[in-house]
Amino acid sequence: MSRRTSPVIPGFGLTLGYTLVYLSLVVLIPLGAMFIHAAQLSWAEFWAIISAPRVLAALKLSFSAAFVAALINGIIGTLLAWTLVRYTFPGRKVIEAMIDLPFALPTAVAGIALTALYAPSGLVGQFATDLGFKIAYTPIGITLALTFVTLPFVVRTLQPVLADIPREVEEAAACLGAKPLQVFRYVLLPALLPAWLTGFSLAFARGVGEYGSVIFIAGNMPMKTEILPLLIMVKLDQYDYHGATAIGVLMLVVSFILLLLINLLQRQIAKP
C-alpha cells in the first residue's frame, strides 16, 4: 500500500496497523471461520441450499423490505434533518433528543412494543383493520419495523453536514435568482449526497440483518414473511450448521457487494 498525500501527518503505520489487527481479531477471523466452514460444502451442495425456494423467498423479502425501509428513511430522514437544523419551533429539542430512541430501545423491546401497537387489536392496528388491511404479520409490518429501527441513521448523518453549510450560501443563491429547486439541485444536493448515501447504506445494511424487532411482528410464515436471519436461526436449531453458514455466507457476500458499490459511488461523488 502506498500513501499519496499528506506526508506531513504522522501515524499512518500505527493507525492502519492497529485497525487491521483489531478488525482481524474481532471480525475477520471469526467471519473467516464461517467461510471455512462453508467451504466444506461442494458448489453443488452450496447451490442446492441457497437456491431452495424458501431461501430465495426470504432473500427477496429481506433485501426488498430493507431497501424500501431505507428509502422511506431517506425521504423522512432528510426532511427531519432539515427541519431540525434549520428551524426553531416548540418541541425541537425534544424531537432532536428522541431521534435516537429506536437505536437505544433494545430491538426485542421495539418488536414487542410495535407488535402491541400494530397488531390487528392494537392501538394503531385496529384502524388498519377498519380500512381492510393488516400491518403486523405481513411484509408491511416487517418494513415498518425496519423503518423504525433504522430511522436515526439518515437524520444523524445529514445533520452535521447541513449545519456546516452556511445559510448565507442558499440565501445568496436565492438572491441571485435561483429558484428553490435550483438551490436544492446546485447548492444543497452536492454537499448532502455523500452523507445521504452513507445514511442510506447504514439503514439498508442494518435492515437486512435485523432480527430482534422483526421476528415479533413478522409472523414468520415460510415463503411469505420469513426473513433471512430467522432462516439462519431455524437451520441452526435443526443442527444444520452447513445450511446456516451457507445462508450466512450468501447474506454477507450480497451485503458486501452492495456496500462496496455504495462506497465507490460515494467516493466518486466526493471527488470534485
Binding site: A119, G122, A136
Partner: peptide, 21 residues
C-alpha cells in the same frame, strides 16, 4: 389457516392470549 408461526410455544401463547390473534 395459521396466520403467525412463532418460534416457540410461549411465543404462540403470547400471540393468542395477549395480542388477541
Amino acid at each position: 389457516n395459521v396466520p403467525v408461526l412463532d418460534t416457540g410455544a410461549r411465543g404462540s401463547t403470547i400471540t393468542f392470549v395477549n395480542n388477541q390473534i
